[in-house]
Design a binder for these strands. Structure first.
Lengths: 152, 152
DNA sequence: TACTTAACCAAGAAGTTTAGTCAACTATTG
DNA sequence: CAATAGTTGACTAAACTTCTTGGTTAAGTA
């Protein structure tokens, strides 16, 4: 479990999809504009999200991305794991000083901690976030900004 | 709140100190050997831990580092914050596209999540970890290894 | 068919972080 | 004084993050 701005971006973008769940496909260009993330970076993130089956894509005009499941069925942990996709494979296999299994055990210790964080983030879904008042607020403000931009 | 291998190293090293709490100062060289972390990297980490007051240092022969508080009073969160020391200051202050406060709010959203992780890690102390059976196991095995090395 | 849209893909640049090295210096103990 | 061990700073290689550029491919629309 690794927590960086990369994961923050992914969760924000997925939340953007969650807020528009059931309203058709959302383009990455729209998300990029609303959330202030570069389009190409979003493309990289969504390539991974698509590969892990968290989103579906539709090409061509009117296309974009949609969540593959209900927001309440997608956890924050799933999103972060999907974009990190690091198996944390450095399990002493290639380390010379890993004699007697000592280092492996300290690794396992940290992994237990990491696991508990994972459990925690597994308990928070996009649905939970969508239903939070503060998120609703942001969403309506963002909609307003788009309408304003279109009317100019 | 950022979770990387850097924090993992810091927590492991602090746990090493926690296991020897009340038994005098522990040298970084010992920790480096036991935990398989490079000495110079440990020096960098402990410079920060010392600056934030989590450890005390004693120079000269017989010197080393000790925890400044009881293991049960040092949380994992404190350690990670001490070595990261990132104020996460990019609060849209320098961003041109932060119009109408929209991005600031999405930031706050993530920060709330981040805060909950912080709360979670604040609830785990070095004392908790020291008392875990698996940690005790590792510790005795490490002691054994040192004794073996000395007797050869 | 031509055009537009928007996903998809790849290469890499720029910047930051991680992890480590090296060298010098200072305080303490014996 | 000599050995130990912390302290500091400059520096580097490698990895990772973030973003850019420049395409291609598929699907609608005129």
């Amino acid at each position: 479990m690794k927590l960086t701005t990369k994961g923050r971006y992914a969760v924000t973008a997925m939340l953007d999809l969650g807020l528009r769940y059931g309203q058709g496909a959302v383009t990455l260009a729209d998300i990029a504009q609303r959330q202030g993330i570069s389009l190409s970076y979003l493309e990289q993130l969504f390539a991974k999200l698509r590969r892990t089956g968290l989103v579906n894509s539709v090409r061509g005009p009117g296309g974009g991305y949609t969540l593959s499941k209900e927001p309440s069925e997608i956890s924050v942990a799933e999103i972060i794991l999907a974009i990190n996709e690091n198996i944390d494979a450095r399990r002493c296999a290639g380390k010379a000083d890993c004699v007697g299994g000592d280092r492996c055990l300290t690794h396992e210790l940290w992994e237990e901690l990491s696991e508990r964080i994972h459990e925690f983030l597994s308990g928070i879904t996009l649905g939970d976030l969508v239903n939070q008042p503060i998120v609703q607020e942001v969403a309506s403000r963002q909609e307003g900004r788009v309408r304003l931009a279109l009317s100019q």
